[in-house]
Nucleic acid binder design. Structure first.
Length: 252
DNA sequence: AAGAGGATCAACCGCGACAGC
DNA sequence: AGCTGTCGCGGTTGATCCTCT
């Protein structure tokens, strides 16, 4: 279900990731963290653009990423959050431990299609139920359509579509290793990346020797030890806890 | 059994936000 | 103030899987 691998003009690989690439990226990030996505592929020896690496890590390789079916509780929460935030998938994902914005977005779109099929008039609700926190002045047609599901009129039959999946202890945890060190990344970026040039995300791959690595590079364990860098903002879990009381222990 | 069409989801693309110079 | 580099987000695409006829 993935695109066939291919190489673009600049020699960057695109399409599906191989297990070898996954291993390389995982090992590298676990060892060194990700200070600078743009330069990471060079140092890790991956023939991908930084953007692709970031996406792969965020959506697939990152520890704590939960895969598989959505529980009804998760779905209730997504509905609630979508009503509040609209298509702010990253904000929704931030409140759903283990789920990524991409996955939630896919899930929502899939469900919407089902819903739209079942109830073609539902799009009417979108105009009546603008999302509370919509800050953007431009509302796309898709936003409008998706909003159709979000209001209180959303009927319970939708849940019958949803599959339930017991939480796996392996895939779900409050493991602080499932972190995002973006802020740390930005603050610790050092001048040793300066030799790079060209377009940021698509810069052609160049192999750098590991010895180029600076001593002041922020290690994964340093990132983990930073209290402000945990992946989940625990203060934001109130709503999550309301909807998913059975997960409370895991979160705490 | 096989083909068609729908569903799923990983990955790509473009753009905007933000920080540093 | 404007430019450049970096990053993340949201929308979209496309290959594969699944289900129905």
């Amino acid at each position: 279900m993935v695109r066939a691998p291919f190489y673009d003009k600049s020699g960057l690989k695109k399409g599906a990731w191989s297990p070898e690439e996954d291993d390389t990226l995982r090992v590298y990030i676990e060892e060194h963290g990700h200070v600078n996505w743009r330069s990471l592929p060079k140092f890790a020896g991956i023939s991908r653009c930084g953007k692709s690496c970031r996406l792969r890590w965020t959506n697939y390789l990152r520890p704590g990423v939960k895969r598989g079916n959505y529980t009804q509780q998760e779905d209730d929460l997504i509905l609630k959050l979508h009503e509040e935030f609209g298509n702010k998938w990253s904000m929704i994902a931030a409140k759903l431990p283990g789920r990524t914005d991409n996955e939630i977005k896919n899930h929502w779109n899939t469900r919407f299609k089902k819903r739209a099929k079942q109830n073609p008039t539902s799009s009417q609700l979108a105009k009546e139920q603008p999302c509370k926190h919509e800050s953007s002045p431009t509302v796309t047609s898709q936003n409008t359509e998706l909003g159709a599901q979000s209001g209180p009129k959303f009927d319970a039959s939708v849940h019958q579509i949803l599959e339930s999946s017991p939480l796996s202890p392996e895939t779900f945890s409050s493991d602080s290793s499932s972190l995002s060190s973006n802020q740390a990344s930005a603050s610790t970026t050092t001048s040793w990346f300066n030799e790079s040039s060209g377009d940021f995300w698509t810069e052609p791959f160049q192999l750098y020797v590991q010895s180029n690595y600076p001593d002041n590079y922020m290690r994964e364990e340093e990132v983990l030890s930073s209290p402000s860098l945990t992946f989940y903002d625990m203060g934001d879990l109130d709503l999550f806890n309301q909807v998913m009381p059975t997960w409370q222990e895991n979160i705490d």
